[in-house]
Design a binder for these strands. Structure first.
Length: 271
DNA sequence: CTTTGCACCTGTTGGC
DNA sequence: TGCCAACAGGTGCAAA
């Protein structure tokens, strides 16, 4: 998927064209997403006016004059603003027609994405209520990471990918941030020093910010709101670079499966 | 409580 | 060329 930079890029891409628009039509071609879209979704959403497009973790929040549309792109989802031209294609599961004639089109081959219409305080929705801090917010600090990692035996890579610790760090950026921080992904989280946590917080912030500036990373599926790929892939230091020379020291990049996910690191730059 | 592994899906890739 | 296994950016949940 879309990790945080890709979701943020999507948010920025659609905010300008959907904010202030009324949702005139709601078309669902396949309700079988991660959580089936309930009957009644269409009638609840149609007629609502979109007031703002926000992001929490990897969720997009479309605030309306009624409730909030809570959207997740899963592993292969994308959300695009299209005009009347292109007809629906395979895996275009959800489409919102807007007052300005545009359509917000959700495409997701693997159907790991989701749509919820939430009334009331969306931050108390079960999917959001227990999430950790935003990595680019001020409350994500070395002290917090240090405190939360005490007595944790999980590998630091899995630790920073845990959304209850910090949100938005997916498989690509976890490896990249650990490279930048000089920390091996297999180290137990509880073995991090406060200084390690400081470098790691800085590295997570830096890599996510840089990726947002490049429009995200496209490996396969991801396209932004205009249907274009992200350009951060060429700036990756370790991800999917097994056996290739480290960009910093030329040592061959290593990889192994950790917690079911491919992990990459430089054995010389990281300890 | 922590940790681990599975489940949900389709599409692409690489080895034989 | 064809077939099949392995793998792919997420994350909730059950089980131990």
């Amino acid at each position: 998927m879309p990790e945080l930079p890709e979701v943020e890029t999507t948010r920025r891409g659609i905010a300008g064209v959907v904010t202030g628009q009324t949702i005139t039509t709601v078309t669902i071609r396949d309700r079988r997403l991660r959580w089936p879209i309930p009957a009644g979704f269409e009638t609840a959403v149609a007629g609502r006016r979109i007031l703002a497009v926000e992001r929490r973790a990897k969720y997009l929040l479309l605030r309306t004059d009624g409730g909030t549309l809570l959207i997740h792109l899963g592993m292969s989802g994308s959300l695009r603003a299209v005009d009347d031209g292109p007809p629906a294609r395979l895996h275009d599961h959800v489409e919102l027609g807007l007052g300005n004639g545009l359509r917000l089109r959700f495409n997701d081959p693997r159907r790991f994405g989701s749509f919820h219409y939430v009334t009331g305080d969306v931050s108390r929705h079960p999917l959001l209520a227990t999430l950790g801090p935003e990595p680019l917010a001020e409350d994500f600090t070395a002290e917090l990471l240090f405190r939360r990692s005490r007595r944790r035996r999980v590998a630091v890579k899995q630790f920073i990918m845990d959304a209850h610790v910090v949100v938005g760090v997916g498989n690509i950026y976890a490896s990249e941030a650990l490279f930048r921080a000089g920390i091996r992904p297999g180290r137990a989280a509880g073995r991090l020093t406060l200084a390690d946590c400081g470098r790691l917080v800085g590295a997570i912030r830096a890599v996510l910010s840089a990726a947002i500036d490049s429009g995200g990373t496209t490996l396969r599926d991801y396209v932004n709101a205009d249907g274009l790929p992200g350009y951060f892939r060429q700036r990756l230091f370790v991800y999917e670079r097994r056996d290739e020379p480290c960009r910093r020291c030329s040592t061959a990049i290593r990889s192994r499966v950790q917690g079911g996910r491919a992990t990459y690191w430089c054995p010389r730059c990281q300890s």
